[in-house]
């Protein structure tokens, strides 16, 4: 009976969403703001990757909020898990096999390099701070799988995290004090399609990359080490 009622409710909700979706003209450039971004994005921000110009420049404040959400989640997780620690003494973890060990050791530096490449070139090619950071964190996940006994240093990861976030905020405040708005792109835009272009966008994306990478690695560390 309960299942039936919830099924009927779900069907009603789905029907409503479909009714609303029907009105949206997909594939037509009616989306007016998006159209503007595509036409003027490179000129106004200097970033060749339009998505980056939207994420870091036009809607940079949202990105600041998003990295704060991640920070909140990481801090909340460590606050909750830190209390719930029950170490069972004498419980041994099976050592990884030779293939896992070698594979992880081989992939770890490559993944770090790929992650760094992605966030450094965030304003030129697809990807950016979040994606690069997530790839770096997955490299650390492999490290936990393949290399026994190796851990990230908690203090270092916190310092990197804090400095990354502070870079973002300080750049924003510099924009404010120069007399314009918060997060104003005050550096020269440079020639589009070169590494040193788009003003503060690459700086912010590199900061985000470091922050996201160390934060997600910290979350993995907490889950694997603390709660055994």
């Amino acid at each position: 009976m309960r299942k039936l009622i919830s099924l009927i409710l779900l069907v009603i909700i789905a029907g409503g969403i479909v009714l609303s979706l029907k009105e949206i003209p997909f594939g037509i450039s009616k989306i007016k703001i998006g159209d503007y971004y595509i036409k003027k994005g490179i000129e106004e921000t200097g970033a060749t990757n339009i998505v980056t110009s939207v994420v870091v420049s036009y809607r940079g404040f949202d990105t600041l909020g998003e990295i704060t959400i991640l920070f909140t989640a990481a801090i909340g997780l460590s606050a909750v898990l830190g209390t719930y620690r029950k170490r069972k003494a004498g419980e041994k973890v099976e050592p990884p096999s030779f293939i896992v060990k070698t594979g992880c050791r081989f992939l770890f530096p490559i993944l770090l390099l790929v992650g760094a490449y992605i966030f450094i070139h965030g304003h030129l090619t697809p990807g950016g701070g979040f994606q690069g950071g997530a790839i770096i964190a997955s490299a650390f996940l492999l490290m936990y799988l393949g290399c026994e006994g190796k851990r990230i240093n908690e203090n270092t990861s916190i310092v990197v995290e804090v400095l990354g976030a502070l870079t973002f905020i300080v750049l924003g405040i510099i924009g404010l004090t120069i007399g314009k708005d918060f997060l104003f792109n005050f550096l020269p835009k440079g020639e589009p399609n070169t590494l040193l272009s788009a003003g503060i966008i690459p700086v912010i994306y590199i900061a985000i990359g470091f922050k996201v990478g160390s934060e997600l690695a910290g979350i993995i560390d907490h889950l694997i080490e603390k709660n055994q």
Partner: peptide
């Protein structure tokens, strides 16, 4: 949408699965 694809692959497929 290569940007979203990259994020989905790195976070959805790798990290979330690991966690």
């Amino acid at each position: 949408a290569p940007d979203v694809a990259m994020a989905e692959a790195a976070i959805g497929a790798a990290l979330v699965t690991g966690i």
